[in-house]
Design a protein around this nucleic acid. Structure first.
Lengths: 228, 228
DNA sequence: TTGGCTATTTTGACAAGTCAAAATGAAAAA
DNA sequence: TTTTTCATTTTGACTTGTCAAAATAGCCAA
């Protein structure tokens, strides 16, 4: 069984691999997100390759093997169910649960995840809107679009936030932006690189497009066009 | 902050120290319960002494310092609240929760323990009947007597089980013996070293005195004597 | 007082993860 | 083609927790 350090590398490798599907993950990237020096990332990846969790092409990058991927999904399942528990059951603020879940996920046995899942009523997404992999190890696909790609005037529902850092989440929390929230993209200003959204209660929030890229909204309903 | 290995040593030192209050804990004992060779226990205790957690008298034994003791109580608080959660909330069998709690206790932040405590309704004892230290670090004292010390004919309530091993707990579970259970000590046979108890539903259970020493009962009510 | 027994401590070695700093390779620039 | 640059890999060292096995210290008995 992998140590909890290895578990973290696996998870990170999976997450980074999602950014550009098909592309190997660079050692530099991995080292940065794991907050270690590049040499350490190389060493760990080589060890993990020996254990059959990744395939490593020297000077190119690494990809999870199928067994590594199964493992990653199991970790993500634990992580996200724990986040759900922290928010729903213990009533923590959803912008400050990531670190706690990060610790707990390594201590949660397989038996306990399933109990927790049942207790929570088999949720499909976590408090950030991230999908929860199934016990069988499948990642559900809830199609969602970056807010940044929508035309001005669109009414939609915030579905998912794809950035976990506490600072960003605190900002969203204070702005009242959480998954499930109805909102309207009222204005886009390409020159100023600005998006303005309006909430149901009339509050306005302005965002740069880089930030807006991390807010995903539901695809289904389009704007308020009444034409066919 | 101590590593989780050190946390385990501290907790064990506290528990062993309770057995004979005042006496230093022997390295041999510590090594046995931590399942390491004696040399490892010595090494760890010396490191912990450097960190101010224990006082170590070479070739005699070790005692927790006040700060070590505070730490131990905090660990015990986490452990016991987690056990409570596993039984009460996730519905696990109380005879198989110890190992899970053993893992989780190191991953539960101070902030989360208090949330968990509130969620559980500030329980005073865990599922084994062990008292839960307060957030301030005080160990409540629920006086209880070993079943083994009672005279035959006593009616009483099972309050606490002071052995954590799964095998013993499974036996009790199957016999229907859990904290809160009313029972009567129907017979004592000193020659055969046997105690027989009868449950409210008529079930009978026989125990050796060594096992009965780990069953504590409430002190208050004495037998069925009607005399003054 | 001298052995001898037994628990404890020391010593040397090892695995996991990490860093600092030097070596290397591949691609871009000259 | 030769340099230069920059990411990656190697190397050597360090920390934590562990074991095996040798050294040591008390204490009890002869």
């Amino acid at each position: 069984m992998p140590t909890s350090t290895v578990e973290n590398y696996i998870k990170q490798l999976y997450l980074l691999g999602q950014d550009e599907p098909g592309q190997p993950v660079l050692m530099g990237e991995l080292a940065r997100t794991m907050r270690v020096v590049p040499g350490t990332a190389t060493t760990m990846v080589k060890a993990m390759a020996r254990a059959g969790l990744v395939r490593h092409t020297p000077r190119v990058g690494a990809r999870l093997t199928p067994s590594g991927e199964r493992f990653a999904l199991q970790m993500l399942r634990k992580h996200r169910l724990i986040e759900m528990f922290l928010v729903q059951t213990l009533g923590l603020d959803w912008s400050e649960i990531h670190e706690e879940a990060e610790l707990l996920e390594h201590a949660l046995s397989d038996r306990l995840v399933e109990r927790l899942d049942a207790f929570l009523g088999h949720p499909r997404v976590d408090p950030h809107g991230d999908p929860i992999p199934s016990a069988a190890g499948r990642m559900p696909n809830h199609p969602a679009l970056p807010l940044a790609d929508l035309p001005a005037g669109t009414n939609t529902t915030l579905a998912r936030i794809t950035r976990q850092d506490a600072e960003f989440l605190r900002f969203l929390h204070e702005a009242g932006l959480h998954p499930g929230r109805r909102l309207k993209l009222t204005r886009r200003d390409p020159v100023a690189d600005l998006l303005v959204i309006t909430l149901a209660d009339g509050r306005e929030v302005s965002l740069g497009s880089k930030a807006a890229r991390h807010l995903l909204v539901e695809q289904i309903r389009s704007g308020n066009k009444k034409t066919k």
